[in-house]
Structure formats: structure tokens, C-alpha cells
Design a protein around this nucleic acid. Structure first.
Lengths: 163, 163
DNA sequence: CACCATGAGTTCCAAATTGGAACTAACTGA
DNA sequence: TCAGTTAGTTCCAATTTGGAACTCATGGTG
């Protein structure tokens, strides 16, 4: 199976990754959340080659994650802004950053701190259950296949060893 | 800059993605969280070619995310299990899945439901501030460069347009 | 006017990676 | 002896990437 066909899988993770799971795309989004909007700024910060960046920005725009808007005329120049669909990916970036802070930081510690403007405290993201309020880890979750997907996602050996 | 050098950036997102940001790797992890542990099961479920899967599993193992343990002798066969470092990536997968459920589901709706075993309710993950308890969106966060990283991550235009 | 600069790409080509298929190794069981 | 299982490795053609140069529209400077 080719990578560009993974959005055919009956899986929301696969469909998400079909748009943003490409090698440079999540780094582009990291920069979007830091306020980067222009082609050359992305290019210099990421060090990605220009045609790869061009391709990734086009895919993000077509996917509804970025909006390409003109910021001047004569000559027309565009910048890329997160849509609300794009901004909803923020939890993914935050958890990636926190995981990196925890496990991959070097001697200098975490490079960035994220501060919650409303309360002025450092953001410590946790997965928690919106019903009971408890913190949730992987082993606290059970998955069920919804109507129409029975047997399509989980299989015999998978269910036996899930944990 | 080559993709394999991005872990040189002073950024936890970049360092995380250097290990798991590769095209098939997050899908491998999705299956790990569903209980998949064996080479051929990953291969059949993902449709990825065998040498790419072999390479990804090796990198995940070297990165400390998976543990390669023998489940039988004669002949020795191994399976891949998430380490605690690997299990801590669960919030990333859950948010990717929820984002896909919300924006990319087809007529049949979300394929899977995640249920919190302790309270038996569907998991609805939200980013929230552990200090004040409020739900947090991208625009509620301000970033600050930590000691030793001043000026290395944010630059003039970036700060101006951050939002 | 001629010339350089800016921003956002596109084009070219060599090098690296992927996809697909076949092959290997180390056994087990019939 | 022969087929089957599991976890890979090897091979090659096709695709993608990295690096550098080039284009296009326009503005500013001497």
C-alpha cells in the first residue's frame, strides 16, 4: 500500500495522518502555532527545501488546515494562517512538545514554556476524562467498534493481547 | 537540511518527530495501542512493505518507545511492546483520533469509541490547564523562551504576528 | 534607466527512500 | 519429506527528497 492511500482505512488516526502525518508537516504546524505565516520564514526556520515546503503548504491548504490569504497587492503576496480546523490540532502539538520535554531534553532543559494567559501558570497538559475528571492513561481505555465497523478494525489476536 | 537531522533543533516537537514523525511510525503506534505486537500483524494491518516496517520497528526500539521481547524459544520469536515512554504518547494518538473523528469522518461516522474503564463513559479528550482547570485553546497560550534559548526559537516577525 | 533586493515559488538533477515481490532462516507438525 | 509459520532480508524499478539555480512581479536606489 502506498502512503497516499492510507486515508482509505476506516480509522480516524489514519485519515488525520494522511493530511498531517507527512515528514515535515507537523513541523510546519509547530511553526504556525508560533506565529510563522510566510513562505521564506518557514523555509529558513525549518531548513526544508523550497519545493517540499511548497507541496506541504499546498496540501495543508487543500485540507482546510491553513488559509492562504493575500497580505499585500502589487505584487500579490500571500501568507498562511491556521483555520479553526487547524487550531484544533493544538493539543497534538502540545502533547508532542511535552513528551519531548520529558524524554528528549538535553542538558539545557526544555527550550520553551507555554503559559496559560488567563491564569499565568505553566501549562501541564494531561489527558483526562471529561465525565469523571480523572487523569487517563492508555491502560484505562477500552475501545469498541461502532456500528458498521464490527470486525473491521480489531481482529482475533489483537483483542486477545490488548492491554 | 535532511529530515534525519531535525533532532538537532532546539525544539521538543522536532526532537519528538525525529523519532515518531516518520511517515508510517505514528500508524505503527496506533496499532500498538490497539494491542498489536507482532511483525506480520503490523504488516498486514498497515499494508506497509516489510523492510520499511522492519526499519521503523528498529528505530522505535532504539528510541526506547518499544521493547522487543521474546515470546517463544525454538525458534526465537519476538514481539514489540510499548514501554512506559511509549505509552506516554497515548494523548497524541487520542487527539489525532478525535480530530479525525470531528473533521474527516465519512457517512458512517467514527469507526471507534474509546471508553474510560473506570467510569464507563466515552472519552472526550480536552486540553485543559492543570492549574485553573479551564479548557485551553491555542490562542490562550503564550510561549516564553527558557534560559539559554533566548532569541533562538522566536524571531522578530514571529513574535509580531503570533496569535 | 540599469541594477540590486524581496518574496514566493518552479525547475533541474543526483542521491536517497519506498513499493512490490521474491527469497532466507529456523524451526514445527503431518 | 513436505508444507506451514514467523520474522525478517535482498533486489530492483519508481518515487521522493535535498541542494542549488532560476523565474516572475515589483519596489527602491544611484
Amino acid at each position: 500500500m502506498r502512503w497516499q492511500d492510507i486515508d482509505q482505512q476506516p480509522c480516524s488516526v489514519a485519515r488525520s495522518l494522511a493530511i498531517i502525518g507527512d515528514n515535515w508537516t507537523l513541523l510546519v504546524l509547530r511553526d504556525c502555532f508560533l506565529g510563522v505565516r510566510r513562505f521564506d520564514d518557514f523555509q529558513q526556520r525549518l531548513g526544508v527545501t523550497r519545493h517540499v515546503l511548497s507541496d506541504r503548504l499546498r496540501k495543508l491548504t487543500e485540507g482546510g488546515i491553513l488559509d492562504k490569504v493575500a497580505y499585500q497587492q502589487r505584487p500579490v503576496r500571500h501568507e498562511y494562517r491556521l483555520t479553526s480546523m487547524g487550531r484544533d490540532l493544538y493539543p497534538v502539538i502540545v502533547h508532542l512538545a511535552q513528551w519531548g520535554d520529558q524524554y528528549l531534553a538535553d542538558d539545557h532543559g526544555a527550550p520553551l514554556t507555554r503559559i496559560h494567559k488567563q491564569c499565568e501558570h505553566t501549562l501541564q497538559a494531561q489527558l483526562h476524562c471529561s465525565h469523571c475528571g480523572e487523569t487517563v492513561a492508555a491502560q484505562d481505555i477500552r475501545v469498541e467498534e461502532n456500528t458498521g465497523f464490527e470486525g473491521k478494525i480489531l481482529q482475533a489476536r489483537v483483542q486477545d493481547t490488548a492491554g
